[in-house]
C-alpha cells in the first residue's frame, strides 16, 4: 500500500531524514518509534505532502502511484489521512462545520459520530482553540472517522489521553484500521508513532521501525522493540538492525 524508497527530507535547510526505506502492505499497521526529535513527525508530514518538510531525493509510492509531488488534498482523496501531533487552531471555524464539509455525501449525522467519542460538547468550538491535549487527540480521531481514509498516519494517538478516553480512542482506531475484520479481508492500514506502546493494548501491529537521527535503524516485531527500548534504551536498537 505504501512504499518509501531512499527518501531524503529537509526542513529549513537542514536534512532531517536520510535515506528512509519503508514498505507497508495493504491491511497492515506498523508502528514507528524513536527518540524525541529523531524525525518521526517529519516523516509523517512528508508522506502527507506538507510544504514544511521538503523531499530532496527519493520516492513515496501509494497504491502503486508515485505521489512524491502530489498536492496534500489529492493524497487525501487517494485515501491517506493524518492525525496531527500539534494541529493549528483555525479561528472562527467550528469543529462541527468542518466535519460537515469533510463528510460530504454520507448520511450519518455528525452528532452520532461525536457521541461515539464523547465529543458533542466540542462541535461548537473553534477547531483546536483551547482544546486540551486529550481533546485534540479525540478531535483528530473524530475527523478521521468522518473522513474514512484507507491509510492512516497517527502521530502519538495516546499522549495526553486519560485512561477512560484511551479505551474509547483505542477501540475507535482499531475499528478504523479494520482490526475487527479478518486478516484476509482487511484493507486498511496505518503507520502509528508511539513512545509508550499503549496503543498496542487495543490493536496488533504487523511491524515496527525505529527512527534514530533521521535514519531507520531497526525493523522488527513491535512488542519486542518496545521491550528492548524499555530495558536498555534506544542505544540497544543501534546494535541490532533486526529485533
Amino acid at each position: 500500500m505504501l512504499e518509501i524508497e531512499d527518501l531524503h527530507v529537509e526542513v529549513g535547510n537542514k536534512e532531517i531524514l536520510h535515506d528512509i526505506n519503508l514498505r507497508i502492505e495493504k491491511g497492515e499497521t506498523h508502528v514507528l518509534m524513536g527518540p524525541n526529535g529523531s524525525g518521526k513527525s517529519t516523516l509523517l508530514m512528508a508522506i502527507m505532502g506538507f510544504s514544511g518538510p521538503r523531499v530532496t531525493k527519493g520516492l513515496i509510492v501509494f497504491k502503486g502511484k508515485d505521489i512524491t509531488d502530489m498536492p496534500v488534498n489529492e493524497r487525501a482523496k487517494m485515501g491517506i489521512g493524518i492525525m496531527f501531533q500539534r494541529p493549528p487552531t483555525i479561528a472562527g471555524l467550528k469543529l462541527g462545520k468542518l466535519l460537515n464539509v469533510v463528510k460530504r455525501g454520507n448520511d450519518q449525522t455528525i452528532e452520532d459520530y461525536a457521541k461515539s467519542l464523547n465529543m458533542e460538547a466540542l462541535l461548537n468550538r473553534d477547531i483546536n482553540r483551547g482544546f486540551s491535549g486529550g481533546e485534540i487527540k479525540r478531535s483528530e480521531v473524530l475527523q478521521l472517522i468522518v473522513q474514512k481514509p484507507d491509510f492512516m498516519l497517527l502521530d502519538e494517538p495516546e499522549s495526553g489521553v486519560d485512561l477512560e478516553n484511551m479505551a474509547l480512542m483505542g477501540r475507535s482506531i482499531a475499528h478504523l484500521l479494520e482490526k475487527d475484520r479478518h486478516l484476509v479481508h482487511r484493507e486498511k492500514g496505518g503507520l502509528i508513532i508511539t513512545h509508550t506502546g499503549y496503543i498496542l493494548d487495543y490493536l496488533d501491529a504487523d511491524g515496527g521501525h525505529v527512527l534514530i537521527d533521521g535514519e531507520i535503524r531497526c525493523h522488527g516485531n513491535p512488542r519486542e522493540i518496545l521491550k528492548v527500548v524499555k530495558r536498555s534504551g534506544y542505544r540497544e536498537c543501534l546494535k541490532c538492525p533486526q529485533i
Partner: peptide, 9 residues
C-alpha cells in the same frame, strides 16, 4: 494544509 489533509481543495 490542515484542511487540505481533510480533502478540501
Amino acid at each position: 494544509e490542515y484542511l487540505m489533509a481533510r480533502g478540501l481543495t
